[in-house]
Design a protein around this nucleic acid. Sequence first.
DNA 1: TGTACATCAGTGAACGCGCGTTCACTGATGTAC
DNA 2: TGTACATCAGTGAACGCGCGTTCACTGATGTAC
Lengths: 258, 258
Amino acid sequence: MTPPNAGMTARERARAELTREIKESARRQLAKAGANGLSLRAISRELGMVSSALYRYFPSRDDLLTALIIDAYDSIGSEVEAAIAAVPADSAAGTGEAEEGSVGSARVRERWLAAGRAVRAWAREHPHEYALLYGSPVPGYRAPEATIGPASRVPFALIGLLRDRGITAPSQAAAAPPDIEMPDALREQTAVVLAALADGVNSPGNLPPDLLVRGVIAWTQLFGMVSFELFGQFVGSFDPTDAFFENAVAEMATLVGL
Amino acid sequence: MTPPNAGMTARERARAELTREIKESARRQLAKAGANGLSLRAISRELGMVSSALYRYFPSRDDLLTALIIDAYDSIGSEVEAAIAAVPADSAAGTGEAEEGSVGSARVRERWLAAGRAVRAWAREHPHEYALLYGSPVPGYRAPEATIGPASRVPFALIGLLRDRGITAPSQAAAAPPDIEMPDALREQTAVVLAALADGVNSPGNLPPDLLVRGVIAWTQLFGMVSFELFGQFVGSFDPTDAFFENAVAEMATLVGL
DNA sequence: TGTACATCAGTGAACGCGCGTTCACTGATGTAC
DNA sequence: TGTACATCAGTGAACGCGCGTTCACTGATGTAC
């Protein structure tokens, strides 16, 4: 077991360490003043350096923001992936009918619920990073392309669950069939997303388009709900949100055929 | 027809006018720098005044923010209410079965769709005000109680549609019955919300609790979707969002039994 | 209708504070021979 | 193993800019008699 710093010079280790400390301090700043209020001078003060020294580590404030955003997407992404993986796949036990060569459907539903809970748990533990990712855009800041990959981890994990169930026909558990025809634009967009899914993992994205659309509906519902909780829209009604949240995630699981 | 300024002294009229201009300038500021960047000095510069003069109109920056928030909630609220009202109630025509003493169900579904479209249209026309209401909280700012009423207009309008249909039993169009029992906490919360609904309008809020919960699910889905569109989460996938949006609103209409 | 006084809008200077970024520099760490 | 040179981290001063809020003031508008 080689330590993470193996083969680094003292200078390199110091650099890695300080880079980490800068980002940690920045995350603390976020909590106090929000993304707009993120101040390089405040960070340098906290670390006991002179503000210009930070420019050895991040060429500008925006680059630091980008690093924080990527870290946060990776953080929530890996939490969700871990929560899914923590629900054992080889069910055998109990309830649902297992289909050939695929994970038991009751297990997939459990994984869906676990993923939803993981999103909410992460958001509540890191409210300011959540706001950075899913709240108002920072004025004047444009997210570079490098954020797209990490940002995709959660939706891909969710959609992946639908595929994992091995569904090729509309689920029996799903609601009534769609009431409106899918227009061409929507059909094309689903094809693009399914192709991207096929890239990421081995199995092809052979998901019925209407099920993908429902997955995206469920995805937006999940984050809409978490945003409302964190940003205060539920104050005076569904607050605390625990019971409503559980119910909603379960309803959405049913909507997507789990 | 008395003009809106009838019976006001010149001083009062000038005051009303300038209050309006300050808020308009503030809204333009919002677009450039976001809520955190809202600057009294910038406003005063735009209006050709000295910055301290603004304190004759708003005792502090936070009070100005509050005024903007209330205006914005009222703006989206009245848009949604108007969109609902614009779909005629006395259907008679065509499709759905009308129940006794209630609006035709096909019309209610149309109204639901219209409400969803109105939310999205307003959000796209006023993205920065939308972000002010539904985006990240402004650090250091706590919304006063006076914002709660205006903030309720949209959810009440949506839930009101469910009640208008005159449903007392779960809808035939809705998806499979809820998979989990409603815990006591959720039952209590629904009761509180239903009581508030009964206050606001004549008819009692005799809505089945599980239908209210679905209404809130649909509400969060709607705003989650609009936030994702405005805040950039759909870039590279469901962008433009028109087709997906229509599909999702229709699916949610079905979920709530319309 | 006219005068005396009170109310109020807007001024301009000041307080005390913050910020991102650049630049020439010192001194320590790392590398090639 | 030791020396010479290159790389790099961190300093400190400066540039040019921003902000919210307070306060004593002038002069116009409104009101009561």
